[in-house]
Design a protein around this nucleic acid. Structure first.
Lengths: 231, 231
DNA sequence: ACAAAAGTGTTTGTGTTACACCCATGT
DNA sequence: ACATGGGTGTAACACAAACACTTTTGT
């Protein structure tokens, strides 16, 4: 069945974003309030149409910048998966290529931007009332959170929740918050500092957490953790 | 920025399939010979347009059946990821939602079907000359193989390379072939038979591999292996 | 001196590896 | 009897969990 370039079923293609951060001791997700139909007034994941000459990930980065003021370099961004049920949008056939973004707890990332409608929400609260989200966005959010939780184990994703320089304790609180578990600070310290290429010491220290000053670290070059950090 | 249902950039949406099997001691992939431009005469992944009312996974299953005669129930099928570079197809803007399929070594799955152009190829040979594949299909194949290799560790994916009933040794040869490593038969036996819910004994035995008859097994209900089978 | 958090050492248990050994069949 | 592959037992080792203990700061 050869392609028929001039005669194919036309689809709209969008990107949707699951933007996660750790704020106030919670895993939070960035949501926007919808201004028009359908699902007017409901919360939704940020997103929008892919432009005719745009790479998918560029479209995701553009929407992220437009709706939140966050730029690549500040955030981790990866493709999550695509959602294309025939009636997921009542107006037309839309395939959405969802992306997962992970951002550090920035001072005030949203206030001064175009779409001041964006707000951080606690993930557990949102998922407890999934029908309040527009479209199939609750399912997308679930998948994004699941991906993030899984990737903490075997990748350096957790460091993208932290500022540029961070302590072992701050990194541990990321794991504890995202997983919803408590971790032994002493064993955690040994594991993450022992994982080759995961963390690089800056040589400097901070006492911002109180008590004995802790070493300040940066993300290392390792993208894959071996052995993994276990829940 | 509200949607404009009547005015959006139109995309073609396709599904492409990475269909893997273990045949003749090799990991093999199903490819079709392209009959028309572009890339006429080149090998490509099977695939085609998503129809206006079709779920993405249904489109993948339909193309799989059309081009190979394989039906759901015989194969494992899951979404891989989407590929949408602006110029990946020279004729128009296409977003392809790639899927990964895993099939057992069926007697003659292809001969009697519509598209008799489908052929099994050794994955390592294909990836050694990636330019011979049409479009960005070499990259999609690489991603599919990588996904399959990773999922053997922590899921029951390997059993889908086997017939309905199989022995521990046959399952081990799947692991060895897909990973390209040798595994200790005795430790492997203990690990897979010990993994809870992974394998269920049928009570019957077979001597088709020679030597002492081996227990015939079926896939269990566990989808997630704990602890994982390590390379 | 005391509280608080960072970081190290040690014990104990569990899982993996390597390999010796026995089992059940065909020839 | 012997070859072939199936399957079990076991010792050595690596790693993770639990937790006692020392270090370094602020108050």
């Amino acid at each position: 069945m050869p392609y028929q370039p001039s005669d194919f079923p036309p689809f709209a293609v969008t990107v949707d974003l699951v933007v996660l951060t750790v704020r106030e001791g919670n895993l939070q997700v960035l949501l926007v309030r919808r201004g028009g139909a359908p699902y007017k007034g409901r919360l939704a994941l940020p997103g929008g149409f892919v432009q005719p000459d745009e790479h998918l990930v560029d479209a995701a980065a553009r929407e992220l910048a437009e709706e939140t003021g966050l730029h690549l370099g500040e955030v981790h961004l990866e493709q999550l998966r695509s959602y294309g049920s025939p009636r997921r949008d009542p107006r037309m056939r839309v395939v959405s290529v969802a992306h997962l973004a992970v951002a550090p707890d920035l001072p005030e990332p949203i206030a001064g931007t175009d779409a001041a409608g964006a707000e951080w929400r606690v993930v557990d609260d949102v998922l407890a009332a999934p029908r309040r989200l527009a479209f199939d966005h609750a399912a997308i959010l679930r998948d994004g959170v699941e991906r993030a939780r899984a990737k903490l184990e075997y990748s350096s994703l957790a460091t993208h929740f932290c500022q540029d320089e961070f302590t072992v304790a701050e990194l541990r609180r990321v794991y504890e918050t995202v997983w919803g578990t408590e971790l032994d600070p002493r064993n955690f310290h040994r594991k993450v500092t022992g994982a080759d290429g995961f963390l690089v010491p800056t040589g400097r220290r901070t006492n911002r957490d109180g008590g004995r000053p802790a070493e300040l670290l940066r993300t290392g070059s390792a993208r894959r953790l071996n052995p993994p950090i276990l829940r």
